[in-house]
Simulated scan of single mutants.
Amino acid sequence: MIELMIPSRRKDLGGFEVGRVLPWTKRRMVGPFIFFDHMGPVDFPANVSRKTDVRPHPHIGLSTITYLYDGEIVHRDSVGFHQTIRPGEVNWMTAGSGISHSERFDTIREHGGPLHGIQAWVALPESEEETAPSFVHFDAADLPSHSEQGLSVKVIAGSAYGLTSPVQTHSPLFYAHVELAAGRTTEVCGGYSERAIYVAKGSVRINGEQYETGQMAVLSPGAMPAITAIEPAIVMLLGGEALGPRHIWWNFVSSSKERIEQAKSDWRAGRIKLPVGDDQEFIPLPEDPPPPKPEPMS
Rank of each mutant, 00 (worst) to 15 (best):
E3A: 10
E3I: 02
L4I: 08
M5L: 12
I6R: 13
P7F: 08
P7D: 09
R9L: 09
R10W: 03
D12P: 12
G14C: 10
E17G: 11
P23C: 05
W24A: 14
G31K: 12
G31F: 12
G31I: 13
P32R: 00
P32W: 08
F33A: 05
F35Y: 14
M39S: 08
G40P: 06
V42P: 08
V42C: 01
F44Y: 11
A46M: 11
S49T: 13
T52M: 07
V54E: 03
T64F: 00
T66C: 02
D70K: 15
E72T: 15
I73N: 02
R76K: 15
F81D: 15
H82K: 12
T84I: 12
I85G: 05
G88K: 08
E89P: 00
E89C: 11
N91D: 07
T94R: 14
A95S: 06
G96R: 07
G98N: 09
S100A: 06
R104L: 09
T107H: 10
E110A: 14
E110H: 13
G112N: 10
G113P: 06
P114Y: 03
L115A: 02
G117Q: 09
Q119F: 03
A123T: 08
L124F: 02
P125Q: 07
E126N: 13
E128R: 14
T131A: 15
A132M: 14
P133W: 04
H146P: 02
H146L: 15
S147F: 06
S147W: 06
G150L: 04
G150H: 08
S152N: 09
K154V: 14
Y161K: 00
G162Q: 07
L163Y: 04
L163F: 02
T169V: 13
P172E: 05
L173T: 05
E179V: 14
S193C: 08
E194M: 12
E194F: 00
A196K: 05
I197Q: 04
Y198V: 06
A200D: 01
I206L: 03
Y211P: 04
E212R: 15
A217V: 01
A217Q: 06
V218F: 12
S220I: 11
G222H: 13
A223M: 05
M224F: 08
P225A: 09
A229W: 01
P232W: 03
A233Q: 03
L237W: 05
L238R: 01
G240R: 03
E241V: 10
A242W: 07
G244F: 09
P245L: 10
H247S: 12
W249D: 10
N251E: 07
V253P: 01
S254C: 11
K257F: 05
K264D: 05
W267R: 05
W267C: 06
A269P: 03
R271A: 08
I272N: 06
V276Q: 01
D278E: 04
Q280M: 05
Q280Y: 10
P286I: 10
D288S: 13
P290S: 14
P291Y: 12
P291T: 08
P294S: 14
P294M: 09
P294E: 10
M297F: 14
S298R: 15
